[in-house]
Amino acid sequence: MNASNFEININAPASKVWQTLWEDGFYMQWTSAFHAGSYAKSDWKQGSKIQFLSPGGKGMYSEIDALEHNKKMVFKHLGEIKNYVEQPIEDSVSWSGSKEGYTLTESNGQTNLVVTVNFPKEMDAYLSEAFPKALAILKELAEKNYITVSTSVNATIEKVWEYWIDSKHIVQWNHASDDWHTPKAVNHVKVGAHFSYTMAAKDGSMSFDFEGTYIDVVHHEKISYAIVGGRKVFLLFALIDNQIKIVETFEAENENSLELQKTGWQNILDNFKKHVESDG
């Protein structure tokens, strides 16, 4: 069993880093560095069981060994999960009993995060590469005003992906309220490509173009892009509980309240879900 420490300094208070670590939507974003669509199931109380899962039903089951809000979280790994079924501990000896700890120390509004992990030797190269990537995503999310919205769609990933990227469908669901619509959408989903959605009030009183450039695209798994002006958006698509969960995390703007922005983006996601599930 190998032991490694991963450390990062984050320009945010410990409470913000803690929220970004463990709140469901944010957790799925930074752990996408290990596997897109990774998620956790737990009540997040000390002594409780927690399952760490990938969309394919593989993962680990563990217990929360230590918990001090905004300061420390330690997981004790017990065994492996295959096809969503917890395997006997004696069949999971490579991980059984290992620990994974997160320690946060705040000073002058900044937080030092140290992650201590015990893991099988065969995981050394993978985790040594993935953990710094994951912590870099965490830092990005914690240091800026990001908002997460999500929905679960009762459809196949093929249908969800098609309806998300195809312009003829985008014009059907891309509006936050019934008095707005998207009369035109131009979309080319590949890294470096540009997209543009014309969003307009139905009474003709105002309109604007929502446009940006794709940063990362992994077919059926994730999309990230930068809106004109530099704000970033991260999207995940994951099969969870026989539905496709979409997690959308966007960098907030400064003109409208965070609550108003979250409501607007959530409404658009809800419209997407409605369009996909009601069409064919």
Rank of each mutant, 00 (worst) to 15 (best):
A238R: 07
A200L: 12
K139F: 02
A12G: 00
I165L: 12
D43T: 07
K202G: 06
D24I: 01
V160G: 06
E259D: 13
N154S: 10
T116A: 03
T31K: 02
T103M: 00
N9K: 07
M60G: 04
D179Q: 13
K262P: 05
N5L: 06
K71E: 06
N2G: 00
G57E: 01
E255Y: 06
V191C: 09
S42T: 07
H220Q: 15
S94D: 11
G57I: 06
V149W: 14
I268A: 05
V93F: 08
Y214N: 13
Y197V: 01
I244S: 03
T148H: 10
T31P: 02
V247H: 08
K222T: 11
A14R: 14
G192C: 08
S107V: 07
A125Y: 15
H194R: 15
V191H: 11
V153W: 02
S224K: 13
L53D: 04
D65G: 00
S128M: 07
L127D: 02
E106F: 04
A185E: 06
E122Y: 12
I227A: 10
W180P: 01
F208V: 10
D270G: 07
K202C: 06
K139V: 03
H181L: 11
D241L: 12
G47K: 07
N256L: 11
A155L: 04
K144Q: 03
L135K: 13
E129F: 15
K41V: 11
F131W: 10
V228E: 10
G101F: 02
D279H: 07
N108L: 10
H169W: 10
D241S: 14
A14Y: 08
L260G: 12
L239R: 12
F234R: 10
E23P: 00
H275F: 03
